[in-house]
């Protein structure tokens, strides 16, 4: 019997790594008059539909994140199952 679940993965740059996109967005906000946002960090978001009931799904999700979805040299990731 197959079950479907969803995993949501958030990937962001590690603290201390310059995020030129975030900096540019923050500058744009300033220009628009939103001066209360001191910093903007950008990131990526993935939604994965998991087919079937996989026993070691947590481990496999972790593998997928560290091997492909994120670059562990510069990025962190967070997995949420929904």
């Amino acid at each position: 019997m197959s079950e479907t679940c969803k995993a949501v993965v958030y990937v962001r740059l590690k603290d201390g790594v310059l995020d030129p996109q975030g900096v540019t967005i923050q500058k744009a906000l300033l220009q628009m008059g939103y001066d209360e946002f001191a910093q903007v960090r950008s990131g990526r978001f993935f939604e994965l539909e998991v087919n079937g009931s996989v026993e070691n799904i947590d481990q496999r999700l972790d593998e997928v994140c560290s091997r492909l979805l994120a670059n562990p040299v510069i990025e962190n990731y967070r997995i949420e199952k929904v």
Partner: peptide, 17 residues
């Protein structure tokens, strides 16, 4: 080469985008 680990570090978006 950086992605596969043969070389260290990473290549990011140009600072001026």
């Amino acid at each position: 080469l950086t992605e596969c680990g043969l070389l260290p570090g990473a290549l990011m978006r140009n600072s001026h985008l």
